[in-house]
């Protein structure tokens, strides 16, 4: 049963991963990527990581919904009504990718993998939580800082008017130069 599930999910994951770069339509490519990543989540669930599998499902669904919006905003031909190719150096990339895959596959089959040591705890999620709030606290704090830095930098990058636009290059303007007057004390 698990074997059938593994093979179905694996084939679907790789096939829809390939289709991401073959579809003309951006929306279809996004949902193809969603299918692929949901299959990845399925494999993670199959391996017994219940919580993380569900997290991946939820995260990817929302992420791909946002991605579809950006796709339609920025890209020509969002509906795929005309065929298009926007690729460069296809042959070189194919050679590199096949080479990397062969290298990895040889490594996978030749590596002396250690045997299974121990067995999973009764509550895998509890184990993860206790680890993140205990011995792996530094990892968790680093991730938190990275996420916070991402919030700040994405706002800085995406904003149209920064403080230098409002208050001049030396930030010493008497009044801020806003398209709409108002706000506190202006």
């Amino acid at each position: 049963m698990n074997d059938v599930l593994f093979w179905t999910l694996a084939v679907l994951a790789v096939a829809s991963g390939v289709m991401v770069f073959r579809f003309d339509s951006m929306a279809r490519a996004t949902f193809s990527l969603l299918t692929s990543l949901l299959c990845v989540a399925g494999e993670v669930l199959l391996l017994g990581m219940d919580y993380l599998g569900i997290v991946i499902v939820l995260m990817m669904t929302i992420e791909m919904a946002i991605m579809a919006v950006f796709m339609i905003m920025y890209m020509m031909n969002p509906a795929g009504l005309m065929p298009m190719t926007m690729i460069h150096n296809k042959r070189g990339a194919a050679v590199i990718c096949v080479g990397v895959f062969v290298l990895l596959a040889v490594g996978i089959f030749l590596a002396p993998w250690p045997g299974r040591r121990g067995k999973p705890p009764a509550d895998v999620t509890m184990d993860l939580g206790m680890s993140l709030m205990g011995p792996q606290m530094l990892t968790m704090m680093t991730l938190g800082m990275a996420l916070f830095a991402t919030i700040v930098s994405s706002v800085v990058l995406a904003t149209r008017r920064g403080r230098y636009d409002r208050l001049g290059d030396d930030l010493r303007a008497e009044r801020s130069d806003d398209p709409v007057r108002g706000g506190v004390g202006r």
Binding site: F6, A10, A13, V14, G17, V18, V20, F21, M26, A29, T30, L33, S36, V40, E43, L47, M67, F70, M71, Y74, M75, M86, I87, H88, N89, K90, G92, A93, A94, I96, C97, V98, V100, F101, L104, A105, I108, F109, W113
Partner: peptide, 29 residues
């Protein structure tokens, strides 16, 4: 081995996309 092979296949398909696609959003995919 099979799981690792699946991971390697996904990695290589993604690498192909990241190397060939011209659109930045597709590259991120």
């Amino acid at each position: 081995e099979l799981f690792m092979l699946l991971g390697a296949a996904l990695l290589c398909v993604g690498l192909f996309g990241a190397l060939t696609q011209q659109s930045i959003v597709m590259l991120m995919m």
